[in-house]
Design a protein around this nucleic acid. Structure first.
Length: 496
RNA sequence: GCACCGAUGGCGAAGUGGCUAACGCGCUGGUCUGCAAAACCAGUAUUCAUGGGUUCGACUCCCAUUCGGUGCUCCA
């Protein structure tokens, strides 16, 4: 069994990733701050981490994956205050939405979900440990800071030179009497009317970086195998995590670091002001399929910047259809017994190429290509009457192992779009729904039973060679987004 | 300003110091079909941003230029 080769940001090289010290591979992935709906850039990261864990599982490596939920931070406090509700009530809604979105995108849940607000004691302990070494210090207003010049290795992840940073630092004014401008907050002293915790180091709330350090240690130990996140988190967030954790424990924090590169949308950085900011829900309400979004976001390997476009989504939708149609073809026909030896070899080669592509730094593009190679070869053979039962079974097995990672063959798209519609209704956002989505999936849309009835009527018409009527029904259905295909084994239909 | 990354066909996107530069989508023609759809077949980059250099040989290594992106500040 191959071992996964994965680029390590810390060393700048591709290295084997294997569990050290425990049977399961221990990994930590920075999760969302639940102050709003997630956008597709967020999900590109989670999607590639999902690929990582699925590939590991496929390679026979058990995984203990921890993801944090940041449910207290400045934005959350600001928004909850504005809405005049407790922060827990405010974040619960977005946390739920986040999990719904993960489900829509077919992302597996981590073994451990860690909420920041549920791990305050561990964070306090960590700060106390640092304080005992005089690496954490408290300033007049009660906040705690990290003494950066006590960590000689600071900058090793992002390859930054601390000296250089300090002379170039834009001055963040020492309003709290920090000892050095670059020292970062570990604990923010309570302000009137803000959520805070009464603790041994004073009343306040955690800084952004300390939560990940504390929770990673709590659930994975001082040292663990892999830490993952978006590339933008590399500095300062991950750098600060390393500083806090390694200074406190005196041990290596994460051995291996994985960073998923940024997503552009229509060639530009996604931002609300550019008008290219998409949440998953936005796209579903525009009629995009969840499976196509997943497949598109996975089609470009994680270490490359990816440009997300609506055209790309069209491509992706059609590509997913090709794969689904292929699987359906293999499953729905009785193939002659036996095995075509030549085709068997081709299928085997595709399977090997697929596995090695993923094992080699998660090259999803190449893995995808290997599967399409197989699809074409098998389709060609089938068209020439050269596909036999053993080949079909082998191809289906390869397809299943592909889908154990890519997870797009099961068609949940209609159901997910309907769920998005229900959400839009509940949130009073029906104005954002594209008209054709309403037509296809709304209250007045055709039910499966109604479609089946029309299909049956058309089949009857065809039998009596009433092609005018048959075509009329087909066109009527097409206008409502239902596509018919006549095959030897009867009529198939699908929603476009 | 400093640092880093990228530039491959109509679009998206792999890849390698030397076989016909993957794969997907699209497009054109054909086969199949009552007609379609699906699938298949053929075609669709003498060429990998531009200019130099190294080499027997570079799209692949080096340098410069141009363009795009990112980080240095909250951010997946």
């Amino acid at each position: 069994m191959a071992t996964l080769q994965l680029f390590n940001t810390l060393t700048g090289t591709v290295e084997s990733l294997t569990p050290q010290g425990t049977p399961e591979l221990r990994m930590y992935c920075c999760g969302p701050t639940v102050y709003d709906y997630g956008h597709i850039g967020n999900f590109r990261t989670f999607l590639h981490v999902d690929v990582l864990r699925r590939v590991l599982l496929q390679l026979g490596v058990p995984v203990r994956h921890v993801m944090n939920i940041t449910d207290v931070d400045d934005k959350i406090i600001r928004n909850a205050t504005a809405a005049q509700i407790p922060i827990g009530q405010y974040t619960a809604k977005y946390e739920q939405a986040f999990f719904e979105d993960l489900n829509a995108l077919g992302i597996q849940l981590p073994e451990v979900i860690a909420r920041a607000t549920e791990c305050i004691p561990e964070m306090v302990e960590l700060i106390q440990k640092l304080a005992a070494k005089d690496i954490a210090y408290q300033v007049e207003d009660g906040s705690w800071y990290f003494r950066l010049n006590r960590d000689p290795e600071y900058g090793k992840l992002s390859k930054k030179d601390l000296e250089h940073i300090e002379d170039g630092a834009r001055v963040d004014v020492d309003e709290y009497e920090k000892d050095a401008a670059r020292d970062f907050a570990l604990w923010k002293a309570a302000k009137p009317q803000e959520t805070s915790w009464q603790t041994a180091i004073g009343e306040g709330r955690p800084g952004w970086h300390i939560e990940c350090s504390a929770m990673a240690a709590k659930f994975l130990g001082d040292t663990f195998d892999l830490h993952a996140g978006g590339e933008d988190l590399m500095f300062p967030h991950h750098e600060n995590e390393i500083a806090q954790s390694e200074c406190a424990s005196g041990k290596t924090f994460a051995r291996h670091w994985m960073h998923v590169r940024f997503l552009l949308v229509e060639g530009r950085k996604m931002s609300k002001s550019e008008g290219n900011f998409y949440t998953l829900r936005d796209l579903l309400l525009k009629g995009q399929r969840a499976s196509a979004i997943r497949f598109l976001l996975l089609s470009v390997p994680y270490r490359n910047q990816m440009n997300f476009t609506l055209d790309g989504l069209v491509e992706s939708t059609n590509a997913v259809d090709r794969l689904r149609t292929f699987r359906q073809r293999l499953q729905s026909q009785a193939w002659p017994a036996g095995s075509n030896a030549e085709l068997a070899v081709t299928i085997q080669q595709a399977a090997e190429k697929y596995t090695s592509a993923l094992a080699h730094d998660l090259n999803t593009a190449e893995a995808r290509a290997a599967i399409f190679d197989m699809v074409r070869a098998a389709n060609t053979a089938a068209d020439h009457g050269l596909l036999q039962a053993d080949n079909a079974a082998a191809a289906l097995r390869v397809l299943a192992s592909f889908d154990a990672v890519f997870n797009i063959l099961e068609d949940r798209d209609a159901e997910l779009t309907k769920a998005a519609l229900a959400w839009a209704e509940a949130e009073g956002r029906m104005a954002e729904v594209a008209p054709e989505v309403l037509e296809k999936f709304g209250a007045n849309s055709l039910s499966d039973a109604a479609i089946e009835a029309l299909v049956a009527e058309r089949t009857q018409a065809k039998k009596t060679r009433n092609f005018a009527r048959a075509d009329a029904i087909r066109n009527e259905l097409l206008a409502k987004g239902i596509l018919l295909e006549d095959s030897k084994d009867g009529v198939r239909w699908k929603r476009k």
